[in-house]
Design a protein around this nucleic acid. Sequence first.
DNA 1: TCTTAATATTTGTATATACAAATAAAATAA
DNA 2: TTATTTTATTTGTATATACAAATATTAAGA
Lengths: 142, 142
Amino acid sequence: MKTSESRFRKCMYFSSNALARKMEKLANESWQRVGLSPSHAYLLMIVIEEPGVQPGTLAGELQLKPSTITRLIEKLEEKKLVVRITEGKTTSVYATPKGRELTPQLKECLTNFYEGYSHVLGLEESSKLVANMNRLSDELPG
Amino acid sequence: MKTSESRFRKCMYFSSNALARKMEKLANESWQRVGLSPSHAYLLMIVIEEPGVQPGTLAGELQLKPSTITRLIEKLEEKKLVVRITEGKTTSVYATPKGRELTPQLKECLTNFYEGYSHVLGLEESSKLVANMNRLSDELPG
DNA sequence: TCTTAATATTTGTATATACAAATAAAATAA
DNA sequence: TTATTTTATTTGTATATACAAATATTAAGA
């Protein structure tokens, strides 16, 4: 059943969740060729661009909780794509050479991903949609 | 950090996920007084309105996978709010009297929930947002 | 300086959902 | 009628994320 046919077609709860799951799926497919989930891939991209970035900053940029960032970094560390250097209470994250080597593939995945959805609404409507989703997120409590 | 300040403010992946998590949180709070998660509550509301509805239909209406519906029903059954009657390969789900008694509270929760977010963008913009999210969901593969 | 409070990160656990395979029944084809 | 395919549901397992508490370190107040 399509969202537009469900009795909850007017409900933000279902629409936002359904869309997020669809985007998650599309993004997973887009980044499959580098063997990373979208969140791992985005985290790696930030770390490459911003060497030494701290988990707290990553949490802010990725809109995820610090505990989630810890788990993401752990996995990237297992794959030898990043390293963590802890000094005192702060931790700095760096991409390894192996991680940096993925840069071109990561960019391709990103392009693929955008192309996977932007044609549906068109670039302008997509931007507006994202802008309104952000506005709503930002003004909601929590 | 607000979504609008993140370097990924233009990315549908982050925006849709961030919004869905915010809505999940708001919805959780809204339905807390009946002791149900939003998905359990919505499922119960459908079952009350549509006695004997089948899991497959519920999956379509709620935009969730059949396996997820099974899990939701199991929990509502434990709480004695619904019962399942299986005949052959189909299963019919009915609300118990205890489940039906929740009707007025469930409606209040729903109202609370809508009021929790619709003022941010206003009713008209909210509707447009939902409509575009649905359109994108429906036209994306999967 | 010593104590308390604030900050950064991690760990243990929980939630919501999905995928893939298993089961079972009904429908169709041979 | 028997064999095969399709349909409906459930079960086992996995993923993405969060919350709350624990840990450790630095900063601030007495």
